[in-house]
């Protein structure tokens, strides 16, 4: 069951080394710190969507959930809500969104693609409407800023960004859940063969709902982190299309879109690869207009290399 993460790890190291050789400033503490920060921010959503993809589903609403929680957080704080209440409300809201997705998919038997595509539209619209589509900031919430986008100094020049701390906690919990609990095993089983899992006495519906709740909740947490990282929220733009980064990271990291396969570490490495590519493009001064093309080519190359590697090892094992 364990998917090979060597391919994606090799890709990470290769791009890292190439960029470092071509531009030594790349390995400066400041740049590493930024790279860790952005990778963490995007990894968290990737981990969330990995759960849904493992069940054989998909969540297209991640970007909109990020936009909604970020917008509503700024909005409620602007209305002088207590920060703790506001943050709990955002987490509750995103979990509720996941719950609704899960119920619609399992009980009303709607397709995940349809449900979450509608979600994408609805939450974006709600964010824009409730906030009058105004850009908002987080003035006077230094403490929250410290928690969500602060830094923990490690050396004189390198400080650990808070999103990384969030990621570590979330990733460890997610990996434990997936690999060490019975529910993680059930999730993998139902992703492979839902009927088979049901016949074995697994409450497949409940687990699928849980996967959507985890996904939306992590999207909500990402929303909070992005909001404080950027210090401002545009209801129409914040988080737009981020679901694609999340899904790309999950798939590149070894989750099969057919379900039943995937690991947390691979997703995190893949999210880091995507951020690394963006960083390298800037570091090497490649035109930003080429970004998407390079991203697409590198990811495709990574997937192909991974496939070849798998065949090679399978052949080796056969001999």
């Amino acid at each position: 069951m364990k998917k090979n993460i060597l391919g994606i790890l090799g890709l990470l190291i290769a791009i890292f080394v190439i960029t470092a050789v071509l531009n030594p400033k790349f390995v400066s503490a400041y740049n590493m710190q930024n790279l860790v920060k952005w990778s963490s921010l995007y990894s968290i959503m990737g981990v969330g969507v990995a759960f849904v993809i493992i069940t054989g589903g998909i969540d297209l609403s991640i970007g909109s959930v990020i936009g909604l929680t970020a917008s509503l957080l700024a909005f409620t704080l602007g209305k002088n809500w207590d920060p703790v209440v506001a943050i709990c409300a955002m987490l509750g809201l995103s979990a509720l969104i996941g719950l609704i997705h899960g119920l619609l998919i399992t009980k009303a038997k709607l397709q995940p693609f349809v449900v979450t595509l509608c979600g994408l539209l609805i939450y974006r619209g709600m964010a824009r409407w409730t906030t009058d589509n105004q850009s908002m900031g987080f003035k006077g919430h230094d403490q929250l800023n410290e928690i969500f986008s602060g830094k923990i100094p490690i050396t004189d020049t390198f400080a650990l960004p808070m999103p990384f701390v969030f990621l570590v906690v979330i990733a460890v919990a997610a990996a434990l859940f997936l690999n060490r609990t019975i529910w993680g095993r059930y999730l993998l089983a139902l992703g492979n063969n839902e009927e088979g899992a049901r016949y074995s006495g697994i409450q497949t519906d409940n687990l699928k709902i849980a996967a959507y709740v985890i996904c939306s909740l992590l999207a909500g947490i990402s929303g909070l982190l992005f909001a404080f990282e950027l210090d401002s929220v545009q209801p129409a733009q914040t988080g737009e299309f981020y679901e694609l980064y999340a899904i790309a990271a999950a798939v590149l990291g070894g989750c099969s879109l057919r379900g039943g396969e995937g690991g947390i570490l691979g997703v995190i490495i893949a999210a880091a690869v995507i951020r690394l590519i963006y960083n390298s493009i800037n570091m090497l001064g490649i035109s930003t207009h080429l970004e998407y093309a390079i991203l697409g080519i590198v990811i495709l190359a990574g997937v192909v290399a991974d496939e070849l590697l798998k065949r090679y090892t399978a052949k080796r094992a056969a001999q």
Binding site: N23, N31, N34, E229, L230, S232, Q237, N279, N282, M283
Partner: peptide, 25 residues
């Protein structure tokens, strides 16, 4: 020095600025 684009993604805009600070002392 250069012109960097971000396709209206504010996170990208910020990381473009960060990368500039790294690349151009």
């Amino acid at each position: 020095l250069d012109t960097r684009t971000d396709n209206f993604d504010k996170a990208k805009a910020k990381s473009n600025a960060e990368d500039t600070i790294t690349k151009y002392e």
